[in-house]
Design a protein around this nucleic acid. Structure first.
Lengths: 106, 106
DNA sequence: TGATAACCGGTAACTATGTGCCTATTAGAT
DNA sequence: ATCTAATAGGCACATAGTTACCGGTTATCA
């Protein structure tokens, strides 16, 4: 591990790119085929793999092309609500709730 | 589940956005604080959460702000090489390998 | 070792996203 | 029911990513 400790935005993009590339290689797909399957240009794929900047759409298309959409599940889990909450709340919160005011300290 | 079955690029972006929003709410963070912490504008965060298009950089910054970088680990695992391969290959493949030619069918 | 496909990176034109600002809606607390 | 902060989205301009094309490098096969 250790890699995630850096966590500067650019480093993270490069890290993600490297991993996607390894994922692609493990699928034995070349850039041309992958880009084609994803419906993007080879250059966009290269930029993604090099951590040189991409869009979320490009990322998702590539994940799909690599048949790794399960990664999305893990990126942000479907429901991360506390089971306890479910018992009390009929519907999930739409906003963050903050106490309205401090006690006016009388 | 089921959600991932649709897998049209736009649907996926919206799905990802919804999940990120739920993640943020589960952290009890509002958009302003989150955007600030991530170093992006509130509008960019709104676009991300609404699945209206974002950059990978924005996504990663938000994940970091939500302290959910572990999601990246799972998105694309650090090393997805088959243990068996490790025994034979001194270094991981840099390119996809394809057989050069068919047998000229003599 | 030689051949060649896979990979890499630059540019220019186009398109999409980010930012800042502004107004409207509304969930949730009182 | 009322109040208000959180959320939502439009617009104009700045910035960043995508595409298509190019020539150069190099891993890997033969």
């Amino acid at each position: 591990m250790a890699t995630l400790a850096f966590s500067a935005p650019n480093e993270l993009q490069e890290l993600l790119g490297e991993r996607l590339k390894r994922l692609r290689l493990s699928r034995n797909l070349d850039q041309r085929t992958t880009a084609e399957k994803a419906g993007i240009s080879e250059k966009a794929l290269r930029n993604l793999e090099a951590g040189r900047g991409s869009t979320v759409e490009t990322l998702l298309r590539v994940l799909k092309a690599l048949e790794h959409l399960r990664g999305l599940d893990m990126l942000a889990p479907e429901a991360s609500v506390n089971p306890l909450e479910l018992l009390r709340q009929p519907k999930p919160p739409q906003r963050v709730r903050r106490p309205r005011k401090q006690n006016p300290a009388g």
